[in-house]
Amino acid sequence: MNDSATNTTFSPALLYLNTTVLNITSYQNSSLLAVTNATTSSTSTVTQPRPQTNSTLATFTTLATLTTLTTTPAGTLASINVPYMAAELVIAFLSTVGNLLVCAAVGFNRKLHTVTNYFLVSLAVADVCVGALAIPCAIMTDLGIPRHNLYLCVLMLSVLIMLTQSSIFSLLAVAVERYVAIFMPFRYHSTMTPRNALLVILITWVLAFLIGLVPLMGWHKTPPGDGFCFFVSVVEMTYMVYFNFFACVLTPLIVMFLIYAQIFLTVKQQMRRIAADRGGQANSEGATNIKKEMKTATSLFLVLFLFTVCWIPLHIINCFLLLCPECYVPLPLLLTAIILSHANSAVNPFLYAYKMKSFREAFKGIFLCCRGSGEGQDHHDDGRVATIHKS
């Protein structure tokens, strides 16, 4: 009853849709059984001279009800949720296109070749994979695909876990890089070299890959007999809560928030000290550099804050589902949390364009180049295209 009637989903985020439909189905089963039992009791009271026939009828009615509920194809339940799937496809498109634009901006603009931006590119690559791989796989597993292939199923269900972990490690690398830039400025250029940044990115992806594949190493449930690839039927909730959330998500987030808190407090104290030394005028070169670092740190902290806002609700609901199985969670709330978590992959390019002038100018340059190259086919004498390419 539980496995076959569960609405199929994918990823730690989509786990909650599975569990909710499971709870709703169980509730419907209980209600129908209660009605069946009530009908059976009533029939037994009226037809006491034929107890054996009524008992057989009651058993047949109960079995028929359970058979109808448990043999309903999972795809039937999933196909009803058209708005949810449409929202997933829109997020997948925005995430893929937007983060590819971020990678192109850093790749083609030498001014953006900084260690910080290398880590942001790593974050963008993870978000591109969410849009191009994870969400399409989520739609596939929503239909129970692949079937009767446990290892491929667990591998697909682990993709978003791996990508989410890579995003967290990239954000942690950005926070540490900002910490070194502000608290150890004389050692920054010798420590935060492009080579070291690429090495850190490689390490973060390897660690994220290993953490995401822990279920494939054996920490998973025995699949149901029907062979459908359901997240809730395959992935252990203890892994999702105790290992993935508490150890691999919550702990790095706490460390990052402490780093940014110390950065903001220290920069504020330095600004006050410079203003006091200058008699209330903080227009020196040091103050200008500090303001620039503060602005950059604020923008990057906003990226971290949005990531936390988008993902923590799902993890909290996950904890409720594991630690309080009898607690009822409304389906609309879960769907909102799922969409919110996936939307985080699409929001960062908009944030960069709004908060960071260098990215905004790079995006404009890319759009103008694309439009200029298209117009140049018909207007060869347009000097504006040459100017753009020259710049």
Results as ranks from 00 to 15, higher is better:
11 S>E: 09
13 A>V: 06
19 T>L: 11
20 T>A: 07
20 T>S: 13
32 L>P: 01
35 V>F: 09
37 N>R: 02
38 A>K: 05
43 T>C: 08
44 S>N: 09
49 P>C: 03
50 R>Q: 10
55 S>P: 01
69 L>C: 00
70 T>C: 04
76 T>A: 05
79 S>F: 05
82 V>F: 08
95 S>P: 09
96 T>Y: 07
97 V>I: 15
101 L>H: 06
107 G>F: 12
107 G>N: 12
121 V>E: 07
124 A>E: 10
128 V>C: 10
131 G>N: 12
148 H>W: 15
149 N>K: 05
156 M>I: 09
158 S>Y: 05
165 Q>M: 06
166 S>C: 14
167 S>I: 01
173 A>N: 14
175 A>M: 08
175 A>C: 04
178 R>Q: 13
180 V>L: 06
181 A>M: 08
182 I>K: 04
188 Y>L: 04
193 T>F: 04
196 N>W: 01
197 A>S: 12
212 G>S: 08
217 M>L: 13
223 P>T: 02
225 G>Y: 09
227 G>H: 10
237 M>I: 08
241 V>N: 03
245 F>A: 00
253 L>T: 04
254 I>G: 05
257 F>W: 14
260 Y>D: 01
261 A>C: 06
264 F>M: 02
272 R>I: 02
273 R>S: 09
274 I>K: 11
274 I>F: 10
277 D>M: 09
279 G>N: 05
279 G>F: 02
281 Q>A: 07
283 N>A: 04
294 M>E: 13
301 F>M: 11
301 F>P: 00
305 F>T: 09
306 L>T: 10
308 T>S: 14
315 H>C: 00
318 N>G: 15
322 L>C: 03
322 L>Q: 09
323 L>T: 05
326 E>D: 11
326 E>Y: 13
327 C>Q: 11
327 C>W: 15
333 L>G: 10
339 I>R: 01
346 A>Y: 06
353 A>P: 02
356 M>F: 07
358 S>Y: 05
370 C>H: 10
373 S>K: 14
377 Q>A: 03
383 G>D: 13
388 I>S: 03
